[in-house]
């Protein structure tokens, strides 16, 4: 067996921010994997939902902030509904996204891009408003 040493990365402040924004306790997670088992949006996730929490427990913030997973999460709250330890992963995902979006220039959707979305005549306003809230600050 290969041994490896894991040390927390340099993003201590970001980890504190996640706790502050989400008010969730990542160390309550016991890695049972129910969140991942029930997640309907894993198709393009590079890290599975329970792995996001594991990396946070191990202080590997760079892994989660660089992952595609946080942007594949649809905030459907299924993970939180099924967590036997009462950890709200949806709130953790949101906190990680917010840390990214609150940095200048990190918007993933800009107001100028909305007209492009509206070329689809049936696209409901609800989708546009949600996307602007979720992808820009």
């Amino acid at each position: 067996m290969k041994k490896m040493k894991i040390t927390p990365d340099k993003y201590e402040n970001e980890l504190l921010q996640i706790k502050k924004i989400s008010s969730e306790m990542v160390n309550d997670c016991m890695q049972c994997g129910k969140c991942t088992a029930g997640c309907p949006a894993t198709l393009e996730m590079d890290l599975l939902p329970h792995q996001i929490i594991r990396y946070l427990q191990l202080g590997q913030f760079h892994k989660v902030i660089e992952s595609k997973t946080i942007w594949s999460c649809a905030s459907c709250f299924t993970c939180a509904a099924r967590c036997p330890r009462g950890v709200d992963l949806a709130k953790l995902m949101e906190a990680i996204r917010l840390i990214s979006l609150r940095k200048k220039g990190n918007n993933r959707l800009n107001v100028e891009d909305v007209s492009q979305l509206m070329t689809d005549q049936k696209m409901p306003q609800q989708a546009i408003v949600s996307a602007l809230r979720k992808y820009s600050k």
């Binding site: 309907p40 949006a41 649809a74 459907c76 696209m123």
Partner: peptide
């Protein structure tokens, strides 16, 4: 009670396509 993908459709249609097909 499964999610349809919601606003993900504005960013990545392949995910919502899989979710709604299910």
């Amino acid at each position: 009670t499964e999610c349809c993908g919601g606003y993900l459709v504005t960013e990545n249609k392949s995910i919502t396509e899989e979710m709604t097909n299910n």
